[in-house]
Design a protein around this nucleic acid. Structure first.
Lengths: 335, 335
DNA sequence: TAGAGTGATGTAATCGATTTCATAAACGCG
DNA sequence: CGCGTTTATGAAATCGATTACATCACTCTA
């Protein structure tokens, strides 16, 4: 428990000098510097975080809120974010909101209490607290949206071109001869789900195949994928391909197809979204839209740090590249 | 940015009274209380976190360090930890150490700087910083090990009985007639890997089948599972079953088996460990030791909070129940 | 030589909250 | 009524760091 007073006493200097040696050593003479550092080391001194934060008005913390940390997509995004934050001298306060507005508001309150310098939310909903802050500060509000792009929110964001990615996935299926295609979306409250769905319609229109689309709404979970695939595959005009807006849902859909005796890709082609770590180890290996998840996290942090540095006058939107990865789950349409 | 001074001025009381209204309202008269609360609301006042933390010597933060947040086992543990922490008024600082000693030490430094009140590490390695702290404070050091049990570390821990779980998994395989069994362990620096391996040997001895064991060392990743399974399946005396110390490795092993034309469970039975969310959706659905991952996180947090409350005189070890979940990946031995 | 500029350091204020100690008023009991 | 106890509140200290402003010593230039 040594304080700066102990160091100053031991080194026969003032606390201001100790502070300077630690923060701006170039303004302190070498002899003094050495004396101070010897005292610091002898005492094992480290500045008290709260005292420093109170004086400097800086917490060196960012809050990252996420609907579910155990979702493999989000956990990878957070991995990238944590790395970028740490590299820049920031720590990540993790907020698993479990899709709860109340929890979202609680974590947003951290900005107000000066408990964190900035916040990244990995979801589509902007808590009221943050909306007010943005209303007041505009683009200077230290808030970034990760993975979603909602221009009306007035916040910076990092994301892929979800519409184009979905169009590509659908083009692949149409190119394989599929005409009746099931699409399992995420929740349509989410702009990224809506963008992907728009991309689906774009491709369908391009191929004159709108009538063959079968849309079902999932929630990105493996369970909803299974459930919605069951419904789609039970239909009178059964799809020969499924496009799921997450790999998790694709895994659930794959299980449902198997349950009905459908072979993938012979009877049913399957496309996922995300390219989570296990996608290539499935049987068959999953064709999927690959998102640079860790890069999304890193980019979100970079945007936030730029805001904190005063470098942004308007909300910025960074679109990262996606990639359609064709593996064994897609094949020629049979019928 | 109102301060407590603004509230006190507006309510015509001292700052001490404002503080009391917020922290110990029962010692303040109702009339005064109402006046203060009206001022608080009118001004939108919220106490400055750093000032409060500096005075109270409490951060209401715990650090959780994890080797890889995107590993589905760890992300689930962290989910439980975050929930328990939040419920108790604490926030989680996430430290993804990426298996780096240096990062582990950096996060451990948060305790020294009074940047966090306590720390949970989800790994087997105790950073020097923490070892020193424990050397000094013993069981009162606010440090908990999650998922591992190393009695010599002198820290409290939450874990399952890894040896018993492994024994059960092996018993299942022996019961199905398997005699040549491959085991893909985690890194043997880790006590949980060693415990599981001990359990493996216990079962092998019980069945007089030590000679039929084929041990390979993985690192819990899907890639190492694939790689080690390839080696094991390339052996002259090929195992009829594989027991992998994580579901991830089991998925890699499954892919390797398929690559070699082995059918699971007909040619090769497979047992994993963890029961991650996708285990049941694999083909075949994975037989695995189910760990209560979120409960592990919750329990670790409960242990830490107990330490912080001064409630522990000696390191405690909480063993949570595991369960062997038999699914389609295990079947009778063919040869 | 005198004055201006630079480098180095110290004193005291500052950040904003909580809590200790003191004091006054009210209450209850003998 | 007097005294002891309880309730309520305020002033000032405290938490531990940073930094603004002042001062001194030294150097350089006109």
């Amino acid at each position: 428990m040594p304080t700066i007073q102990d160091v100053a006493r031991r080194a026969h200097v003032s606390t201001a000098t100790v502070s300077r040696v630690l923060s701006t050593p170039e303004v302190v003479s070498e002899a003094t510097r050495e004396r101070v550092m010897a005292a610091v080391e002898a005492l094992g001194y480290e500045p008290n975080y709260a005292a420093k934060s109170l004086r400097t008005l800086r917490t060196a913390k960012i809050v990252v809120t996420v609907p579910d940390i155990s979702n493999p997509f989000f956990s990878s995004v957070i991995r990238g974010a944590e790395e970028a934050a740490q590299g820049a001298g920031y720590s990540v306060l993790l907020g698993d909101t479990r899709h709860s507005t109340e929890r979202e508001e609680q974590y947003a309150g951290m900005l107000r209490r000066k408990e964190a310098d900035g916040l990244i939310f990995l979801g589509h909903r902007l808590p009221d607290t943050l909306a007010e802050l943005i209303g007041r500060q505009g683009a200077k509000a230290p808030v970034v949206n990760g993975c979603e792009f909602s221009p009306d929110l007035g916040v910076s964001s990092a994301h892929i071109d979800n519409a184009a990615a979905a169009t590509e996935a659908m083009d692949l299926l149409y190119g394989l001869g599929h005409r009746t295609i099931g699409v399992i979306t995420g929740p349509l409250a989410s702009p990224l789900s809506r963008d992907r769905l728009a991309g689906v319609w774009t491709a369908a229109a391009r191929h004159g195949a709108e009538a063959g689309l079968r849309i079902a709404t999932g929630d990105f979970s493996v369970e909803s994928g299974e459930r919605e695939a069951e419904s789609l595959l039970a239909a009178a005009k059964e799809p020969t391909a499924l496009f799921c807006f997450s790999d998790e849902m694709a895994m659930g859909a794959l299980a449902a197809a198997r349950q009905r005796g459908r072979r993938c890709p012979d009877d049913l082609s399957l496309v996922g979204f995300d390219d989570i770590r296990f996608a290539r180890y499935l049987e068959p290996a999953l064709t999927t839209v690959s998102q640079p998840m860790e890069d999304l996290g890193r980019t979100a942090v970079a945007l936030l740090l730029d805001i904190l540095r005063g470098g942004q006058d308007a909300p910025r939107s960074v679109t990262l590249p996606h990639r359609l990865v064709v593996r064994g789950s897609t094949g020629l349409a049979r019928r």
